[in-house]
Design a protein around this nucleic acid. Structure first.
Lengths: 222, 222
DNA sequence: GACGTTTTGGACAAGACTGTCTAAATTCTT
DNA sequence: AAGAATTTAGACAGTCTTGTCCAAAACGTC
């Protein structure tokens, strides 16, 4: 009964939603490379394969579009973050190797991908102009991810794999170390190769474990 | 003879150079908060306390002005960096405490100050548009600073204060750790308080020394 | 195939900005 | 204090951009 009309209303005409996402993707690309002020609606429309009027129909105006894009990308990036976090090695056979793999997933999915770059740029440039928008990013994103990672580390400490004073600090430092070698090149827009990523993750984990690693108590491994 | 005219030509009229730097400072502020595209020459002129025509007289056009500003700030920031590096504790009495102080100077002078923020923003946003400009930044700045810091760490390793596989990696990681707690808030433009800076530096050094610290061989201390 | 909705393309007004020009005012040098 | 150079304010042309409007075309649904 209402089901049909309801889903129709929600799903819209399929190509309508297709256009919607295509606009958001295009807008993200353009905002990212030109900045908010430098972004041009005509260019966004062209890149989305859509007429300018359609952009205005869907999103009202430049600022509204910008906000929609940031929201969307924020949510997607956060989802990705937690998804990646789920692959944390809670019961490692080989802590070093498994942490390196985890670090690699983190850099690939959450630091070097397009969404993350977009967010870094936009937060840095427009963060102070839209406090609410970016407070949301901070609290739902880095804030929660950091606590979640801290909890995983705390668990490893309990099992005797790590020796930690403060799991929250350790989590933040883990992120920092992962970024240490990549920071400069990602700022200039380079995309580090697989090789480079691996070396970098390995360096990070090596240092992290030098600082916090420990042999697990034997009884608990299996 | 020529001395007079020469110095005249170089020094210019004193207020002329005063205006020049005032324009550059104002431009830096405006570019920083609005981005290149969003920056408005009239605003820059007003903020420099100068007429628009004067801006054009001195710097020709917006892009030329931008390049001049980036160059100037890059050089200043680099100079500051090396100056700060000179206070590295080569013969520490108390390695932990002295590294913390050094880290604090580094965060204050080279990470949280206005010039550094400007450069981070501009490199992130316009880095790919002006490769030469920012290659210069990278090679003369982070690149050389990192090696220089690595050399200092290597020395501490020789004296037995540290145990290092690769001083270059250690240097990059030291920077990363120093930034670990500050990264998110500086992205949003917050200015961490003195308290926060100290805690953050202390966390960084604690972890760094857990990973690389060592009691120095007794013979070498005095 | 008819009907309602969405999309298109192009025209358009309004505003903003860059960069130039000029004549008058101010400042520097001597 | 005179002469040279710099600075100013304002006007101005030209361009670009945003956001609106509209009639025709395309699309999706029944």
């Amino acid at each position: 009964m209402t089901a049909d009309t309801a889903t129709d209303t929600v799903l819209q005409s399929r190509s309508q939603t297709a256009k919607r996402v295509s606009i958001v993707e295009a807008a993200a690309r353009v905002f990212c490379s030109e900045g908010f002020a430098g972004a041009n609606i005509d260019v966004i429309a062209a890149e989305a394969g859509v007429s300018r009027q359609t952009v205005y129909n869907h999103h009202g105006d430049k600022e509204t579009l910008f906000i929609a894009v940031v929201r969307e990308i924020t949510d997607r990036a956060n989802a990705r973050f937690f998804e990646t976090l789920d692959s944390f090695p809670d019961r490692p056979q080989n802590l070093h190797a498994e942490l390196v793999e985890f670090a690699l997933r983190l850099t690939r999915n959450c630091i070097c991908n397009r969404d993350s770059k977009f967010l870094r740029k936009m937060i840095l440039m427009e963060g102070s102009r839209y406090p609410a928008l970016f407070r949301h990013w901070r609290e739902e994103g880095p804030g929660r991810v950091s606590s979640a990672l801290a909890a995983r580390f705390a668990r490893l400490a309990l099992t005797g794999f790590l020796e930690l004073d403060d799991p929250d600090v350790a989590a933040r430092q883990f992120f920092a170390l992962i970024n240490a070698d990549l920071h400069v090149s990602t700022m200039l827009g380079d995309n580090p190769g697989e090789e480079q990523l691996r070396i970098s993750a390995d360096n990070a984990v090596k240092t992290f474990l030098r600082a916090f690693g420990q042999q697990p108590r034997s009884g608990l491994s299996a």
